[in-house]
Design a protein around this nucleic acid. Structure first.
Lengths: 216, 216
DNA sequence: CGCGTATCTTGACAACTGTCAAGACTTTCT
DNA sequence: AGAAAGTCTTGACAGTTGTCAAGATACGCG
């Protein structure tokens, strides 16, 4: 049985304050996680300490253990925050495209733009995804993000096949794997300073998307 | 001017011994590097210390600095040793295949076999390749290996197109990226305990190889 | 105001890291 | 056999790491 109807104004007030404090708590967690994400993206998982992260925020290193029980919990929270920023970007391409060619071009351009705009963040993503192959702590969250990325790619690819009225040669899993491979290789070259990496990625993504739809 | 003709038996003897010692030195380096590779493949770059590596060999931790000046030099040497083991495997498939279908099946089977037989070693490879995106020390060696892998894949793919008498939709770089992506995704699933990962990889590799050749 | 709670800093801890030097042991040469 | 060079172990060092506790500071309440 609930006691919602029984609480008085004092209790309500206390709850309101508790909620405000919870919000502030959550807000600071997000703030610290943002500093952590930035530091991790710059230095990589292996070389980032909690003191490094705190130095990239406006707080001292002790505060991290006030908001996160553990280094693992902090990084897990970061990984989740990354997902929130990352996945939602591509869906409007699917929503607005009216032809296969338009969708194909939009997809290529979006991949190339992501490569340039968020190179270090994706470098971190691949770092953490690899880390999860050694350390069980991150595996669940990483897998969840990877699956949501797979679904995102699949929405694009299947929509493209629908617009092109051509069946696909592969299913969701390998489709994601293929474009992820293209992006990762482009990221390596882009970070190595290769000038045309984004342009090449754009072109290659469009070519492979075409190739994955069965013609004839 | 050389003095080859001038050296006497004593000098020759000294040289022979020096060479024998060099060989022993190189042999022990390889032995220690093997222990390092095993340890790194098990624990990952971030969690592997020199003492861990020494404990996986029959020596104490101090000897590592007798054979390697640096942790960086040790790992660089490991990366090179990995390359020697890895790249040469696929070429006999290209050499022996007489039809496109045979080559396609051989390629898929070889990828699947590699996935099962050397899962942890390739997990390490991806770890180190990512590390090179943060740490310049490894970049040159990693890039060299990546390029030699790309050439290896290209020998297979271009030979397939030749046998199938069909032009390819992509060039060397994206071809490697695509199959590398397929392998990496399969590796994640295989290491997560997913039973059919190798079989799926075999099938997907063959499908994508077909899709990359222009039909009609 | 004064009290209690929430937040944050400081300093410390034990463990671990890469590195190195001193010396013991082994092998090789004379 | 004795000397010399090569090989390996041990123990130590300075620095870093995650973690935590004690206390300082800020804040909201009666």
């Amino acid at each position: 049985m609930t006691e919602v109807a029984q609480i008085g104004p004092a209790q309500q007030n206390r709850d309101r304050i508790a909620r405000r404090q919870q919000d502030k708590f959550a807000e600071r967690r997000a703030q610290l996680a943002a500093a952590a994400l930035q530091t991790l993206a710059e230095q990589g998982y292996a070389r980032t300490s909690l003191r490094d992260i705190a130095q990239n925020s406006e707080f001292s290193h002790g505060v991290l253990h006030y908001y996160f029980s553990d280094k693992t919990e902090l990084i897990t929270y970061c990984v989740r925050q990354y997902k929130a920023e990352c996945v939602t970007r591509y869906d409007n391409i699917v929503a607005t495209a009216t032809s296969a060619a338009e969708l194909r071009q939009g997809f290529g351009a979006a991949m190339a733009a992501t490569l340039v705009d968020e190179a270090t963040l994706h470098r971190l993503w691949y770092d953490l995804r690899n880390q999860s192959l050694f350390d069980d702590s991150y595996r669940a969250d990483v897998t969840e993000i990877d699956q949501s990325l797979e679904r995102m790619i699949w929405r694009i690819v299947s929509k493209f096949a629908e617009l092109a009225e051509a069946p696909l040669a592969v299913s969701s899993g390998p489709a994601y794997a293929v474009f992820d491979g293209l992006f990762q290789q482009a990221l390596i070259r882009h970070l190595a300073g290769q000038a045309g990496a984004a342009r090449d990625l754009d072109e290659n993504v469009q070519r492979v998307l075409d190739a994955l739809t069965v013609r004839g």
